[in-house]
Amino acid sequence: MSSLERADVARLAALARIDMTDEDLDRLGGQLNAIVDAVATVAEVAGEDVPATSHPIPMSNVHREDVVRPSLAQDAALSGAPEAEDGRFRVPQILGEEA
């Protein structure tokens, strides 16, 4: 199994939106490699002919009727927000994306 290079961990951390210091990358990288080696064994038994199980209890077609339920009041919706303005959640500037 391929081992995780430091750059790989850095890329994964960026994808997961977790800032990491060089120290973090070193420490976590080492631990992750040990774990990855241990879990990679799943590929040994997962044959082509074995179907995947995503839901432990097989069920399907669970839907909701298209009937309106009460929403939260605006102040309740915003109650946990680190910052709000004009009834909206306020965030620092967004870069490099369309509106």
Binding site: D86, R90, Q93, I94, E97
Partner: peptide
Amino acid sequence: GGIQGASHSLVDY
């Protein structure tokens, strides 16, 4: 008023 140069943004869900 565009995304470029905005000081912050507000989100309505």
